[in-house]
């Protein structure tokens, strides 16, 4: 077996995605110093990319960019805290951002829904400050597929979620609403419980990590008394990403 063959075989394993994490990181480090290995990887990955293009295009959910933008703000705050001198200008970013919003009119409905939802969320929270109960770790505004706010969740540190539906979801005979969260794509969606109809409720889910910003929450329509597979099988009625309330 020649050195050249070994190099091509290793480039193949890298590009096909067959390496363990540690092996992959080592290969990426080697690319910085080994021009021949790097060239082999580039040749193969650029050619194999033709197969990626055969996947076509999936619809992009409304509101997805809004969710990403919210996380960019957090990422920038982290970078600023780290006193990075990378030259990423925080002061100019909002101006650029507004220009983007004006130009990308397609995003506007999602943004409007998000602001309405945010207003509802704040109003809802303001109404609860009289009671001495614990503050939620995150608040979630869940949108329908039409990007209309359909429910508000408050998730607490004790694995409970307080649910306030904003719409009356039709629940046919033999069906139930099931509430899910995704805190780790590797674990997959985790059921927090079921609701017979769209009424305010508090559900206690299984033991899980502290809810965090951007965690996905959703309600699906499932056969009663709940999804037979333990994972969502029915249509998504509402879906949203968690936000951390300020303070």
């Amino acid at each position: 077996m020649s050195v050249r063959d070994d190099r091509m075989a290793r480039a193949g394993d890298y590009v096909l995605g067959l390496m363990e994490e540690a092996e992959r990181l080592r290969a990426e480090a080697d690319m910085a110093t080994d021009a021949e290995f790097r060239a082999a990887v580039d040749l193969l990955s650029n050619r194999m990319a033709a197969l990626d293009d055969t996947a076509g295009r999936d619809p992009v959910p409304e509101g997805m960019w809004t969710a990403i933008e919210a996380r960019l703000v957090e990422a920038d705050a982290d970078a600023a805290t780290a006193a990075s001198s990378a030259g990423r200008s925080l002061s100019s970013a909002p101006v650029v951002d507004l220009a983007a919003r004006r130009r990308q009119t397609a995003w506007r409905p999602a943004l409007m829904a998000a602001s309405i939802a945010a207003a509802l969320g704040i109003g809802y929270l303001a109404g609860t400050t009289f009671s001495p109960r614990p503050q939620p770790v995150v608040v979630v505004v869940l949108d329908t597929p039409d990007a209309v706010p359909g429910a508000i969740f408050e998730a607490f540190a004790d694995d409970t979620v307080r649910i306030v539906p904003l719409q009356d979801f039709a629940v046919p005979e033999g069906k139930t609403l099931q509430v899910w969260t995704l805190y780790d794509p590797a674990v997959g969606p985790v059921s927090l419980g079921t609701l017979p109809s769209a009424v305010p409720a508090v559900l206690r889910g299984p033991d899980q990590p502290l809810p965090r910003a951007d965690q996905l929450y959703e309600i699906t329509l499932e056969p009663a008394p709940g999804s037979p597979t333990g994972k969502p099988t029915g249509p998504i009625l509402v879906k949203g990403f968690a936000r951390r309330p300020p303070g």
Partner: peptide, 29 residues
């Protein structure tokens, strides 16, 4: 640090990238 450029990249590439990821993970969400 140009967020608008990232937005344009998202507008042109997101649908393609979701399709590629879905072929591997099988679940849209």
């Amino acid at each position: 640090g140009d967020r608008m450029a990232l937005g344009q990249l998202f507008a042109t590439e997101a649908g393609r990238l979701i399709a590629i990821a879905r072929r591997i993970v099988r679940r849209r969400e």
